[in-house]
Design a protein around this nucleic acid. Structure first.
Lengths: 234, 234
DNA sequence: CTCTCTATGTATAATTC
DNA sequence: TGAATTATACATAGAGA
């Protein structure tokens, strides 16, 4: 209540000031347009270009924000094609066909088409089911479940989590031990080479060559080892 | 120039007034949202339904204003279909097919069938993918994943688990409070009946009957309440 | 056709019922 | 669910380059 009154006063004040300003120096007063074909060709083209971009943007946003699949096809008055689809246009179109009313009307005896549509619809349904299952595992769309089902679901997800963590830890340990092995092997090799280099120090020119060639041939291995090793803080 | 300055003052004044008003009685401050999947399921559904309507409206307006032909297909995350087309969906789709890719025309008589089979195969593939995803969430078929993927998977499953547990706890608490309410109501009733029974004690045979019948009819409710209440140690 | 700029119309996020 | 409300963010008409 109070807020309504307050903002009303504010708006009144705003508008009256605006009016004053307007009388002094404003020329453009944007009209509220009505939705019917724009007469002026140029204006129509400009509007088409602007609004087309707007619609495509909105479609993309909807697809991203809400995890929806969208296909959008636009033909300009001159026949130019613009289109967008969040995934595969063809797939979306076919899915649309499969789900919306019978695509081939008038008793078309296309048995094969019928069959395909049928099994297509079935496949589609399976996909929907799987998707819902997936979403429930991710903790969404849970409102229809009762306590027993929720507990069962929790156990499933918990079990899954355990498996994943286990697999992760295994992989982690394996990678670590593998890298440690590589490390010690390389250190060994390194030490050997250093010794060799010390021996040949007397000749005076063997150092550079052997060092550089060794480095290049081994650098990939040791680099990888170090890079991968760091995150585990060992 | 002058207009710019004027309107700037106006805006300043407006905003400062607005701030004052805000401090007094405004609560809602709309945030600028970023375009990425909305986490909260309810919010996502609400946004989907709002923005979907918005996109469809924009599409219609574009079609009317600029004499364009438009087809729009939207699948919600749950697989529900929404669509619009300014003329015939089929016709637009066919036109799109004809123009978008002239890959294999000329003498291919089963072009349509081919494409349908194609998308059928694609749907099949999607199903396979979803199934694998499902199995991975359950902690199976993990051997192909590297550390990064495993960590990502763990986070996903963990998040899912949290959601499920949360939903379960909510449901549980709700059931408990409902049952407690029932319990107290029944106890009240019970006490009343007991009093009544005491009054009629003079008759000599009313007590037993009323007590026993109350207990049996209420035992299920209170038992459930106790059993469900225990895990939360309250 | 594209881009910019500004003032405005419109869509919509957040919230309540 | 769906329907309001409100304040804000965003889209876009109109004009010019």
């Amino acid at each position: 209540m109070a807020s309504g009154v307050d903002s009303f006063y504010f708006l009144s004040l705003g508008f009256s000031l605006l009016q004053v300003v307007k009388c002094d120096c404003m020329k453009m007063v944007r009209q509220k347009i009505q939705i019917k074909k724009i007469d002026n060709l140029t204006a129509r083209q400009v509007t088409f270009s602007k609004r087309r971009r707007g619609v495509f943007k909105k479609a993309q946003e909807l697809s991203t924000l809400c995890d929806a699949e969208i296909a959008l096809i636009v033909f300009s008055a001159t026949g130019k094609l613009f289109h967008y689809s969040s995934s595969s246009m063809m797939q979306l179109i076919e899915r649309h066909r499969g789900l919306s009313e019978n695509s081939d009307k008038l008793g078309q005896p296309s048995l094969q088409l019928l069959k395909e549509n049928n099994s297509y619809a079935m496949l589609s349904k399976m996909l929907v089911d799987k998707t819902r299952e997936l979403r429930q595992l991710m903790g969404e769309e849970l409102q229809g479940l009762d306590m027993d089902e929720l507990i069962k679901l929790e156990k499933m997800v918990d079990g899954g989590l355990n498996h994943v963590v286990e697999a992760k830890n295994d992989k982690c340990l394996k990678e670590i031990s593998l890298l440690k092995k590589k490390e010690s092997k390389l250190m060994e090799e390194n030490a050997k080479l250093k010794k060799q280099a010390e021996k040949s120090e007397g000749t005076g020119n063997g150092i550079e060559q052997s060092n550089s060639s060794d480095c290049t041939s081994n650098s990939r291995g040791s680099d990888t080892s170090l890079r991968l090793g760091l995150p585990f803080a060992n």
